[in-house]
Simulated scan of single mutants.
Amino acid sequence: MSRHRFHGDPTRFEVVAGFVADRFPDARYVADVAGGQGMLTRILGKRYGIECEVVDPRGWTLKGVPSRQEEYAASMADFYDVIVGLHPDEALPAVVDSARVRPVVVVPCCNFWTRAQRLGQAELLATIGRHHRGIGGGVEEIQLDFRGPKNRGIVLTPPPA
């Protein structure tokens, strides 16, 4: 158990890190978008040897966690091998748009996709999936093994070149 305090199930960082490492064994550089304190980044680096950095304008990272204190933009995606949005909040559209060029793992917590309609998590994932399929990309819905209602996500892969 971590000595750090987090909202939600703290095991989610271990679960997502393991998923990323297993699913993308050749990934060497990962963006942890809106990664808060950087626990996912820390685990990816220490346990799996994957270089990772938090991209989050809040600048809340733990000591020693690589980070960029700025808002994430989809134009940054080329710099990374995989983009991870574990509860990315307002960065959700940019994270999804990154899947035009890089694989994306996103586990949304809130509907920051559209302000025009309220979407629950299932509807949000379906909407993101339709959007990405519409540009020719690959979509796979996933359920991760941690507690809580926000453990469903989606893996997006870029459209064929």
Rank of each mutant, 00 (worst) to 15 (best):
A34V: 05
F19T: 12
R47L: 13
E70R: 10
F79W: 15
R28S: 15
F79E: 15
R42A: 14
V55L: 00
K63Q: 15
R23Y: 09
G35C: 07
V33N: 07
V54G: 03
Y72V: 00
G85W: 00
K63R: 15
T61Y: 05
Q37M: 14
D26M: 12
E71A: 15
S75H: 09
F19D: 07
D81W: 10
V54R: 00
Y29G: 10
R28Y: 10
R42S: 14
G45I: 09
D22S: 15
R23A: 13
R23P: 08
R68A: 02
G35R: 03
V33K: 02
G64P: 07
I50C: 02
G64Y: 10
G85K: 01
L44E: 07
L62T: 10
G36K: 02
R68H: 01
R68M: 05
D56P: 01
V55G: 03
M39R: 14
D81R: 11
Y48G: 04
V65E: 04
G38D: 10
V82M: 11
V20S: 06
D81T: 12
E71S: 14
E51V: 03
G85I: 02
A27D: 10
D26E: 15
S67T: 08
A73V: 10
T61R: 12
A21F: 08
G64V: 06
E70D: 07
T61P: 05
C52M: 02
K46P: 10
G38L: 09
M76D: 09
G59Y: 03
Y72H: 00
G64K: 09
G45H: 13
P25M: 10
S67E: 12
S67H: 15
Y48L: 06
G59N: 06
V84C: 03
D22F: 13
G49A: 04
T61G: 04
R68F: 05
Y29P: 12
R47C: 11
G85N: 04
Q37K: 14
G36E: 05
F19N: 08
G36W: 03
C52P: 00
V54D: 01
K63M: 14
V55E: 01
E53C: 00
R28T: 15
F24D: 11
V54W: 03
Y80E: 09
S67V: 06
V30R: 07
